[in-house]
Amino acid sequence: MRIAAPQVRVGLVLALLVALHFVVRPRLGDPRFAPDFVLVALLFFATRVRPMAGTIAGFLVGLVTDAVAPTAFGSAAVALTVIGYLSGWLKAVVFADNLLVNALFVLVAAWARDAIGVLVAHQLEGGALGWQLLVLSPLAAASTAAAAVVTLLLFRGWLRQSAT
């Protein structure tokens, strides 16, 4: 089956990532270190659209994410709004179509999402906050970056075409 429209291709990859998040992620062991496929999808989306669309997508995804953690309701929305906006802006300024740069970008974005979310939610402090930001979040960000790299390797043609 030949899929011509780049938007459709990117849409399929994003849908696949969202599906993976809810079907595969629960089976990947400790959720603290499992890759966040929705975040990868958001980053891929945000780097291919204007910052406004990325911002709105980030806000909506964050709101939905907050729905399953109502004690910190709004923290993920803040974090992903910022990440969505900055992704679109940053990509336009410095981005190159390089696998390593993409991986680094996802790594930093995932860690920044965690950092913003944790700080805004204000639920951790002291050693627990340090442990979360310096150990758990980097590990989770690394696994998310790895998932992004795998996705890019598998669908690089589709994703590159849509970006041009």
Binding site: V10, V49, R50, P51, M52, Y85, W89, A92, T164
Partner: peptide, 17 residues
């Protein structure tokens, strides 16, 4: 989801943000 020609944030983007 069309790639924008102008990737830098405009006022509308900043306002939405």
């Amino acid at each position: 989801m069309a790639p924008g020609s102008d990737r830098y944030a405009s006022r509308a983007d900043t306002a939405a943000f």
